[in-house]
């Protein structure tokens, strides 16, 4: 079953088109990602999904309901982790969850039980009675995710769940998210970390300037556009045309990135040997696995992050 169906979805802010007619479907139980650089329209898109922003035009249904007419019913079954933490600083950690639960009209005893379980699950049990502003960035993020789960949502929407966290905290969040997916929660995730996208997402769309450039499974996208590996090389001068011509047959494509050229080899080792036989001065060379970042670079000529 499709949990979310968007058709020609548009979001305009006073005439400025932030989302320009995108279509996508999210299946039940999968982790679906929106990958794109700053300003791509990721937040604008998910805000329409969680019925915060009105849809400017197009169709959007969530769990079979129209966001225009059944917002309350939809929101009852969603969990939302917004890009900016908006925990309630006037309330303690546990109170944050309990008050949030009351917005879903959960019975008090049940809410308390679920809240304690969630604090446990996210490693925050010993912080239950602390003030929110004494928590670290990673703890706040975990608490925000815990809060989003208080109503046992069918769909969890995460807008950049790990931006600003250190690698360890990030891995901890990823691990929890994977467990949620195992429990059957549909995850919707925006990110500009390609590693996050490839670690978590079953399928994703690559967005830029309000449009969807590509859609598919992370690994498929990489093999479709790049192949398995990338050979980064730096030439002495801007001679890439000449060199690339000579490498014809050994590479499937290439991308110029500043001083460097990213070559997409059929076979990395063979390409390396071929390059060494050539009479060119190579400043450096580096063979590595291809990533979503490279896909994005190829599609847009831009980097995901600066």
């Amino acid at each position: 079953m499709d949990v979310i169906v968007a058709e020609n979805l548009v979001k305009e802010y006073n005439g400025f088109p932030a989302v320009r007619g995108i279509s996508f479907r999210v299946c039940e139980g999968e982790c679906f990602g929106f990958l794109g650089p700053n300003g791509a329209g990721k937040t604008s898109t998910v805000r329409m999904i969680y019925c915060f922003s009105p849809v400017s035009s197009g169709q959007l249904t969530v769990l079979g309901m129209d966001v225009r007419t059944q917002a309350r019913e939809i929101k009852r079954r969603l969990g939302v982790v917004p890009q900016e933490n908006n925990l309630d600083p006037d309330l303690k950690v546990l109170q944050n969850l309990l008050v949030y639960a009351s917005f879903f009209r959960l019975p008090k005893n049940k809410a308390r039980l679920t809240a304690m379980e969630l604090l446990e699950f996210f490693g925050l049990a010993d912080k239950a009675h602390e003030r929110v502003d004494t928590l670290s960035g990673g703890m706040k993020r975990r608490l925000t995710i815990a809060r989003a789960l208080i109503n046992k949502p069918a769909v969890l929407i995460l807008d950049e769940p790990t931006t600003g966290l250190d690698p360890q905290a990030r891995h901890m969040v990823w691990q929890r998210l994977r467990r949620l997916k195992e429990q059957g929660v549909t995850l919707i995730l925006t990110t500009h970390y390609m590693e996050e996208a490839s670690q978590l997402c079953d399928r994703l769309v690559v967005m830029d300037e309000g449009e969807i450039l590509e859609e598919g499974e992370p690994r498929r996208l990489i093999s479709k556009h790049i192949g398995a590996e990338i050979l980064e090389v730096g030439f002495a001068a801007a001679r890439e045309r000449e060199i690339v011509r000579q490498l014809n047959g050994l590479i499937r494509g290439y991308q110029v990135v500043g001083e460097n050229v990213f070559l997409y080899p059929h076979n990395g080792q063979e390409l390396l040997k071929a390059l060494q036989r050539m009479p060119f001065q190579l400043n450096h060379q580096f063979l590595r696995p291809a990533t979503l970042e490279d896909v994005f670079l190829k599609l847009t000529g831009k980097k995901l992050q600066d």
């Binding site: 309350r72 900016e84 925990l87 309630d88």
Partner: peptide, 14 residues
């Protein structure tokens, strides 16, 4: 500053 309203309207609260 606290974005409390934004948090509330992400629930069934309007």
């Amino acid at each position: 500053f606290q974005k409390t309203f934004q948090a509330m309207v992400s629930t069934p609260v309007s």
